[in-house]
Design a binder for these strands. Structure first.
Lengths: 252, 252
DNA sequence: CCTACCGATCGGTAGG
DNA sequence: CCTACCGATCGGTAGG
């Protein structure tokens, strides 16, 4: 249960890390109350662009926008959505608060994009597994392993996906809730298939079993450490062993 | 994954529910942004007390204090600590914001008392199970069932215990982290015992198995519904079955 | 991307 | 437990 050490961790996920933001800025241990940050050190001016700043409304899809998303993901994961201010994000990126709005529409929209793109990755692996011709037990094992793989790619994003979606409102929230339940259904279908085909225990309570597996999987985002001794594949394999074979010896 | 319906739910836990606060006030569906609440309807004056208000510094341990804790627990669970304002709590209780401070010391202290008293309940059942003379498998089953029982007593409090503790700072945080890891140890000890005595699979990865069980248990606070069709004992039993015997048929 | 700033809201207090 | 209020901070915008 050391889910929130102050160690700065890359957001992983095949993207460059934000340049020139203060290391260790706004980690959980130092946040709130009263630990107000100082003025962000301006990042070194990058190569001059034809126009020094985008016009309002112009679609901005550049490097900076990606950095903002990465830092917001990290901060929302560590401090929660409501516990993260736009000033926290600006400081982490190396901008002044108002400058964020050239790149993004607002705080809630930032959350929505993080949550939705995150959950889409989980839906993608569920789709892949469903399309494979494997049997239910192999499907479940594959889905567990793939899930751990997505968590390991970016644990903070996973925390945001599974906890911070509550701060969304209106139809954004509805869309996310729908996608979450679609992911849950993927597990339900596989386990129902396996129960009917006899590879899973016939007395198995579908509802409780699905939620037990999902609970174990969601929790991985809280304890997974990229610098741990075990590979992602090993962790997934062992998690699948525990959930599928159980703790008791087969004899008992 | 319907963990956040707008339905108002009693805080359970053998205490009277707050009188005279607006039903449905500040539920998740209506929170933020821009949904600012109106002035709280004053609760009907209770029987006159000898003194109409306590002096500052005087220890207040009365009814109102308990209602404040119950409402804060509910709100912290539903909206998160950072997403809940003292004004939210005051409105739910039926006071004006400043009046809360006759009963409590401050927001963070309120969180600490909720988290610590909550985690103490989990430690108490772990102690009880450890002292029982049962074998490791029976101990684990009992602990799983007791855990579900504590969750069912007050799901919101459990959500606060397992997620909102991150907002604590300083030694309060350290104390809570220590208690959390003590609870984790209780599971580790039982499962280690069971593995050595041969009742649990010898190839079992202790770390992953402990975290899988804890994950499944922590998740119950997100989906448990007091008005569901299954009794708490049944849910605990089925969760223990799933985790201990696994999903596969014993034959396979 | 910065300067400069807005109105709203925050946790909390003085004083009765 | 209320009235009245504080200084700090919030998300966000105008204009260049």
């Amino acid at each position: 249960m050391t889910a929130c050490g102050p160690a700065r961790r890359s957001t992983g996920d095949d993207r460059p890390v934000a340049p020139g933001h203060a290391p260790g800025a706004a980690t959980l241990a130092t946040v709130r109350p009263g630990s107000r940050r100082v003025r962000p050190s301006r990042p070194p001016p990058t190569e001059p662009s034809p126009r020094r700043w985008a016009m309002p409304g112009e679609p901005v899809v550049g490097r900076t926008r990606q950095i903002i998303f990465d830092e917001a993901t990290r901060l929302f994961g560590a401090q929660g959505y409501a516990g993260t201010t736009m000033r926290d994000i600006a400081t982490a990126v190396g901008l002044l608060p108002g400058s964020l709005y050239t790149h993004i529409q607002g705080k809630e929209n930032l959350l929505l994009e993080i949550v939705e793109s995150g959950i889409d990755r989980f839906l993608a692996i569920a789709d892949g597994v469903a399309r494979s011709g494997a049997g239910p037990d192999q499907k479940l094992r594959a889905l567990i392993k793939d899930h751990v793989g997505v968590v390991a790619q970016n644990p903070e994003r996973t925390l945001v996906v599974f906890h911070q979606w509550r701060y969304l409102t209106g139809e954004a929230r509805e869309r996310v809730v729908e996608k979450r339940s679609r992911y849950e259904d993927a597990f339900r279908k596989i386990m129902n298939q396996g129960r009917r085909s006899g590879v899973f225990a016939p007395g198995l309570d579908l509802k409780v079993s699905v939620l037990a597996v999902l609970g174990a999987l969601n929790w991985t985002a809280e304890w997974y450490r990229p610098d741990g001794p075990d590979t992602v594949a090993e962790i997934g394999e062992r998690l699948a062993d525990t959930l599928m074979s159980g703790l008791l010896t087969r004899a008992s």
